[in-house]
Amino acid sequence: MEQKKEPLLEIRDLSVSFRMYSRGLKQTDLRVISDLDFTARSGEITAIAGASGSGKSLLSSAVLGILPDNASVCGRIYYKGRELTPDLQKKLRGTEIALVPQSVAYLDPLMKTGEQADGHRKPRPTEKREKLFRRLGLPEQTEYLYPFQLSGGMARRILVSSALLTDAQLIIADEPTPGMSLEQALEALKLFREMADSGSAVVLITHDIDLAFEFADRISVFYAGTTVETAPASDFRKGPDALRHPYSRALWRALPQNGFQPLDGFQPYAGALPEGCLFAPRCPHRTEKCTVQVPPSREVRGGEVRCYYGA
């Protein structure tokens, strides 16, 4: 893989489990992320695509240190080469590391959107914010509105603005574009591109993968709590033949403009993961080997893939 840009965030063998009550007072650990590797580099947009419930949002919570109390994390997370400890997370989040949360329910319902976007910064970045709101096509008076008066797409654009108003070096945008029209989504992505071009690392978690194909540098594909493929975005633009993992190809083919083909079966539930490759039960190419042992991550044509047959 190209190594010209320095990794800002590096995640190795990350696992996240939740302690849950199964019956009465009996507790079980539910592993929702396993053996996950992920890298974000300064100057790049790395998109995370993949199944709903594959742990994309949990990854962002793990990086920020905002997982619920019943979660336990193992593995290593490095930020600028230093281990990202809970203390460091606390210091960096909101300043050096910014999050665009997935749910518009993260907006404070009792606070006007303008104040909310400004945050606690002093002096308030009013001018910069007005410019951002204009670029994102938010109407003039939006800053005086409360969240309940906003449409879904407007609320999203407020969330995006609040993150862009920080001078963060790492921006994790968790589904920033749903509810926006295509033009607005493109403008939002352009803003992220500018942040990356000015030296930040942007992690873009998205289901609008067709947009990610255009705007990202690299795309990591998640499935059932692990990365199955990381590839240059250009491979996704080329089409399924340039991809390495059968799940990535299935994603490409499920786009409405590329056939709208669902794939049989469903992502395995975290409490009932299969032995071996997690995708094997749905894979058209599986062999016996796949159902026995998890395929290790391999480098193939400038990308990484977890499949014995990825070529």
Partner: peptide, 17 residues
């Protein structure tokens, strides 16, 4: 109302089906 924007494209295709 935008029921599948939260979903991955494979699940989107399945749910619409």
């Amino acid at each position: 109302d935008e029921i599948s924007t939260m979903l991955d494209v494979i699940t989107q295709a399945r749910i619409w089906e």
